[in-house]
Write a protein that binds this DNA or RNA. Structure first.
Length: 592
RNA sequence: GGGCGCGUAGAACAGUCUGGAGUGUUCGCCGGCCUGUCAAGCCGGAGGUCGCGGGUUCAAAUCCCGUCGUGCCCGCCA
């Protein structure tokens, strides 16, 4: 650390400095004035140290308030016996002040710089520069920086080239909504901000780069969530002449390096690999949280002969009956109704619940419709013990597992992120069906199928070479082996119903590039924000983004987005709609 | 676009269900006291458009409607 006007970082003053004169500078965390003696804590980026002063000798101490920026010259000494503070890294020593100088006073704070105080997030964001002084936020910033540097180091050591790709590109309306930027020089035309460097990194493979990575800002203009902002940061990578396993192993190294750097833990490698079908069957989501079991059990085989109408119908309609054992827990009629409502919100028509009673019998509104044999089979299949609550859904396969997967997450998920459970989900379907029955890609349209003939004959069940990385139930990112054969690429567009003209217009430039000796290639991208969020035990990426936006896309500090002058709009060839003009007038902004 | 929650002093809250004077707590702020504290302590004080608008009522922080802000979620997010 370059100290500048200081000799020491506040948090680095140590027993070895006793009897030496030091200069520290930072912020007054707290003043404790006892009349004849006063203490104040000086905090800088390195930590905190206590300063002791006689207020008569140093009347300036009387002025010090929270978050004043100060410089202190003084002598380091051992704290008197019994007054050491084990909570503080510098708690064995203190600085006896020789000189105290206010570098800059601070107004009364909008909130206290203290991790123990929960402050409304809007107020925090309005004064983010103060919020970032809080130890937790400062730690998050540091962790993020260390994670990215560990990741960079990993890729550098593996011989990857860091290449920057443009952020003003053309819009491709598939997938997420693009963030658009109007062109002044070509009025009426728009750039888009990249949703990812996808096609550029593939072009870099065609360019002979072979090993590429980038820490890239990406933009998707969709609604916000705790784990989604319009702009976010991804580690983006791609390699030529390799297959899936090389990609996964490389990404694992980078993720493990970030974990090691932030938490000092060794992540066992390789990560478990589960197929998409497997995770859907067992956990009902494509990003399962493997920190807990509560697996979905298939009960269909045990109920083939059942007389219970709901189960019978589901099975007859080629559906399935599945259940989860959520363990022993409080179960009341009200609780059952609540959970049933959750299940319905997840798409279920209903939910069957059963509680295992002390005598081994099943308490359930539908118990009387099930034979002894069926009840026993259910208990056995679900390893049900005394007091356990069993939840059962009967529906088409996808709905049944997704409902139970949603309930599993809601009922079983541990708080915090003390333990880490990484996994790979592999063998995703190549396509999926939209609500309107049309077929769409499940990853992106440049993903390679595992088998081209299979893709042509049974597109609905074709497997792709796409894979996701999941950590504690959070989707960190995804990747795939790409299509490097222009014919295959054209066939995929065809299956997707994008006709040749359209494909040519949108992606012609890319399809042409594929025609010049494209090496087999594939890669991955994972969200730095989400990774650091989990590693820091946060539940929102806003806690690891220095200046995030609220759910409505607003930065409460700068006020962005804002109205711009009519002249700026005119230069861009942009006019506000009547609705937008009305909003602008309502906001009190002048409209010429 | 939709569902649910929240909005009371600079901050965090209680009060709202069951209407009755802006009633209270902690922190911060201001003044005073205090020589070993570290979420210091003690005494005193200031500080309020109960988000905003409308309605019901003799009376609204409280009930109703609308609206804005904010959070979580659904849709959306290849």
């Amino acid at each position: 650390m370059v100290q500048g006007m200081r000799t020491h970082g506040a948090g680095t003053v140590a027993v070895s400095d006793i009897d030496t004169t030091v200069t520290v500078a930072g912020w007054v965390q707290k003043r404790r004035d006892h009349g004849g003696i006063a203490f104040f804590d000086v905090r800088d980026a390195s930590g905190v140290v206590q300063v002791v002063a006689d207020p008569e000798e140093h009347p300036v101490v009387d002025e010090l308030k929270m978050e004043y920026c100060v410089k202190v010259i003084g002598t380091v000494r051992r704290r008197p016996e019994g007054t050491e503070n084990p909570e503080l890294a510098t708690g064995l020593v203190e600085i006896g002040a020789d000189h105290v100088e206010v570098l800059a006073p601070a107004k009364t704070l909008p909130f206290m710089i203290d991790d123990r105080v929960e402050v409304d997030e809007r107020v925090r964001l309005q004064h983010r520069y103060l919020d970032l002084r809080r130890p937790r936020m400062a730690a998050n910033l540091r962790a993020r920086s260390r994670a990215t540097s560990a990741i960079r180091r990993t890729f550098d050591e593996l011989g990857f080239l860091e290449v920057e790709t443009p952020t003003l590109i053309n819009s491709t309306p598939e997938g997420a909504r693009d963030m658009l930027v109007p062109s002044r020089l070509r009025q009426g035309e728009f750039y888009a901000l990249p949703q990812s460097p996808q096609l550029f990194k593939q072009l870099l493979m065609i360019s002979g780069v072979e090993r590429y990575y980038q820490i890239a800002r990406c933009y998707r203009d969709e609604d916000f969530r705790a784990d989604r902002q319009v702009e976010f940061t991804q580690l983006d990578m791609e390699g030529a002449f390799w297959d899936r396993d090389e990609v996964l192993e490389t990404v694992e190294k980078a993720l493990a390096a970030a974990v090691k750097e932030i938490r000092g833990e060794d992540v066992p490698l390789p990560f478990p690999r589960l197929t998409w079908h497997d995770v859907m069957n067992r956990y009902g989501v494509d990003k399962p949280d493997l920190r807990f079991d509560m697996e979905i059990v298939d009960l269909t085989d045990h109920l083939m002969e059942t007389e219970f109408g709901v189960f019978k119908t589901a099975i007859e309609e080629a559906g399935t009956v599945r259940g989860i054992n959520v363990g022993a827990r409080e179960w009341s009629r009200a609780r059952a109704d609540e959970i049933t409502d959750v299940a319905k919100a997840l798409g279920a028509k209903g939910l069957v619940w059963m509680v295992v009673e002390g005598d081994g019998s099943l308490r359930s509104p539908i118990a009387k419709f099930l034979s002894e044999t069926e009840q026993d089979a259910i208990k056995k299949a679900m390893s049900a013990e005394n007091g356990d609550v069993l939840l059962i859904a009967a529906d088409r396969w996808r709905t049944a597992v997704e409902v139970l997967g949603g309930l599993r997450n809601r009922l079983g998920r541990p708080e915090g992120h003390d333990e880490l459970a990484f996994l790979w989900v592999i063998d995703f379907p190549l396509f999926e069906e939209d609500d309107d029955g049309s077929i769409t890609f499940s990853h992106h349209p440049f993903t390679s199928p595992v088998d081209i003939d299979e893709m042509r004959q049974h597109p609905e069940s074709a497997i792709s070479k796409a894979y996701d990385a999941v950590l504690n139930g959070v989707e960190l990112g995804s990747g795939s082996i790409r299509i490097h054969d222009p014919d295959v690429q054209r066939q995929v567009f065809e299956i997707l119903g994008i006709d040749a003209d359209v494909a040519q217009r949108r992606f012609g430039w890319f399809l042409e590039a594929l025609d010049y000796g494209t090496p087999p290639h594939g890669g991955f991208a994972f969200g730095i924000d989400r990774l650091v969020m989990v590693l820091q035990g946060e539940s929102s990426i806003r806690e690891v983004i220095p200046f995030p936006k609220t759910q409505t896309g607003v930065d409460p500090m700068t006020g962005a987005p804002t109205w711009v002058e009519e002249g700026q709009l005119a230069e861009l060839g942009v006019e506000l709609s009547p609705l937008a003009r009305a909003r602008r007038e309502e906001s009190g902004e002048e409209t010429p």
